[in-house]
Amino acid sequence: MNGTRATAARRRKLVMKGLESAILLLALFLILFPIVWMALTAFKRPVDLFELTLLFTPTLDNFRTIFAAPWNIGAALWNSTVVAGLTVLISIPCSTLAAYAFSRFEMRFKGALFFTILATQFIPAVVVVLPFYLLFRDLGLLDTHLALVIVNLAIVTPFAVWMLKGFLDAVPTESEEAALVDGATRLRVILDIVVPMVWPGVLVTAVFCFILTWNEFLFALILTRDNAVTLPVGITRFRTERGDLWELIAAAGILISIPMFLLSSVIQRHFVRGMTGGAVK
């Protein structure tokens, strides 16, 4: 009796194990395949494009083409780097100070203020961009880096405040209090004690915000035309009247994605906190 029951249980376990592996393999395939396919396509000649074989003669021509005229993807690469870099450089210091204040001090209207800053990340970008489009048009700022940096700050700042507050909340306050007693002013405490202690968190937040800005599409689509076009908008340019140049899209896609893969794997452990703000550990 016991023996047969054990055998049945063992068999069931084996079936479940097989099922589990099958599901995981499917998940792996679904996650990786689009990336792998894009990567493969980037090295294909146009004639191989719709061949579903893995056997083709790889070429670097596509990468040469996208960097040459008329595509000049290098310019978009530069624009993306400048816009994302400047956005992060402006946003992170401001957000760190605010997050510190929210984390450490009691103040009037703190709840309402924090709530407002956080709630803004739920605002659809499309409602924000309308007035900015009109404003920038009047100021002659359309199609400039500055315009993109300004609107991207709208997305990035609430995230950064939230994320950094999570990191700061996790830093024990004793060292700061020790420094206050030891004779430091509050600003000195922030510079000497808090920043070095929360530095990894600041870095993670900066990387996260960089990725958000780098991948941003809507603002760039509406506010740029030629000079300030970023990579996500840049790739749409490969859809021409003569048809979609998939091999060039794939090459540019690799160009956009590789740096983000690297950055996101650097901060992998903390990536989840970005959007959930420590609501989920």
Partner: peptide, 17 residues
């Protein structure tokens, strides 16, 4: 972690392909 690092615009265009 990988898919989330891909630009949504690029995701769209790749799926179109």
């Amino acid at each position: 972690i990988l898919p989330f690092a891909v630009s949504p615009a690029l995701v769209g265009i790749s799926f179109r392909f």
